[in-house]
Design a protein around this nucleic acid. Structure first.
Length: 374
DNA sequence: GGTTCCCGCCAATTT
DNA sequence: AAATTGGCGGGAACC
């Protein structure tokens, strides 16, 4: 077994090692997006997604829940989601902003204690759905005196809600940079066991990663090199870059191949008895964000139209999409917001509005006037 | 050392 | 009942 002259000056020929980064949620999300963000896609099946991306179902749930919280997807039925597309994001964000501001009166006076800003509200009136059961729409808040039982609507701790609240932080406060610790602290109240906090932060990491892959936020640091924090990019998340991308690759019916996802496991520990004590403490400490002025909307979006169709598929790149080489060594996925909403476009009118909250016509319009800015 | 965060157990929920 | 959906946190990869 001579030492095969490996290309890399690495140690022994450790062919393929487990790489955590290649399994990241963010990358998976990028692939997911690249896979379903095509014309013609209207629904996505969880099994299908899991298969094509070569991951376990569990991971798909994470992504789907987050995407749904931003409007990109909508649950249709068991195992079935409707692809709304990126065009639905502006609308969703507006609603989140309104909710966030409304539900948050921290201002003069001190005590607020109304309730946190949970609550969603993105329930589309099922146009033709069926069995509209009376369902228990909101939470009960019946803060009964029961000792500790708290059916604690599981929903309150859902990834989706957390995502929305996390986003509200950016939209409704004037904080420019938010660290996950701050976010967790804000969304959680204050005094808390480090355990609860840590768990929340874990979730926020997950969320942050997919939001990053969507270019809604960006990771940075406070000042030069301080603690990491995130900055809201939102709609103006576009790239300048050149426009050498002449024609778009003809990705018609190319995909459909098998997934070739390498299957390395991280390791195989086992026997880990559970036994832990977790508290189901409900927190309702209102965030003390000041809604002074709208955070964004204070400057024109870039002009010019640049077409950058760069998708980067990582390890689990199932389909064969235009594989673009990375920039250097810093994987950076870029999504072309322009193309994303280019599919269909209602042809009536075009209110040259900017983006006043409160009323929106069509996702596409808002979207286009914002992003395309033609 | 601290930070990041994947994996998957297993409990809620839905079918 | 089974299947789907997803909290949750250990602990390993990563810095």
């Amino acid at each position: 077994m001579a030492a095969s002259s490996s290309i890399l000056p690495e140690s022994g020929a450790t062919q393929n090692a487990y790489s955590r980064k290649q399994k990241s949620l963010g990358l998976l999300c990028s692939n997911f997006l690249g896979l379903y963000n095509r014309e013609g896609v209207q629904s996505v099946g969880l099994d299908d997604a899991a298969n094509r991306l070569g991951v376990e179902r569990r991971r798909i749930y994470d992504i789907v829940n987050i995407l749904e919280s931003v409007g990109v997807l909508a649950r249709k039925a068991k195992n079935q989601y409707t692809w709304k597309g990126f065009g639905a994001i502006p609308r969703a964000l507006d609603e989140l902003k309104v909710e966030g501001l409304k539900d948050n009166h921290s201002f003069s006076d001190g005590n607020d204690h109304g309730k946190q800003f949970s609550d969603d509200e993105d329930e589309r009136y099922s146009s033709q759905n069926s069995g509209s059961r009376p369902d228990k729409t909101n939470q009960v808040v019946t803060q009964n005196s029961s000792s500790s039982s708290k059916p604690d609507n599981r929903r309150e701790k859902s990834l989706g809600l957390l995502t929305q609240n996390f986003i509200k932080l950016f939209l409704c406060s004037n904080m420019k940079l938010i660290s996950l610790d701050d976010a967790a602290k804000l969304l959680l109240g204050d005094g808390h066991g480090s355990t609860i906090m840590r768990t929340k932060v874990r979730r926020l990491y997950d969320i942050a990663n997919v939001l990053i892959s969507m270019n809604l936020i960006e990771k940075t640091h406070h000042t030069e090199n301080r603690k990491p924090a995130f900055r809201w990019i939102g709609l103006r998340g576009k790239l300048e870059n050149d426009s050498s991308t002449s024609l778009s690759k003809s990705n018609k019916r190319s995909f459909g191949t098998e997934i070739t996802n390498i299957d390395f496991k991280r390791s195989r520990l086992d026997s880990a008895s559970v036994g832990k004590s977790m508290f189901g403490v409900k927190v309702q400490e209102p965030v003390q964000v000041k809604c002074e002025s709208l955070g964004y909307e204070d400057e024109k979006i870039m002009g010019h139209d640049s077409k950058v169709k760069t998708y980067e598929f990582g390890p689990f790149a199932p389909i064969n999409v235009s594989r673009v080489q990375t920039t250097e060594n810093k994987p950076k996925q870029v999504h072309d917001w322009e193309n994303l909403a280019t599919v269909y476009r209602p042809q009536y009118q075009n209110p040259a509005l900017k983006e006043l909250f409160g009323h929106y016509k069509d996702a596409w319009h808002t979207w286009h006037s914002e992003v395309v800015k033609k």
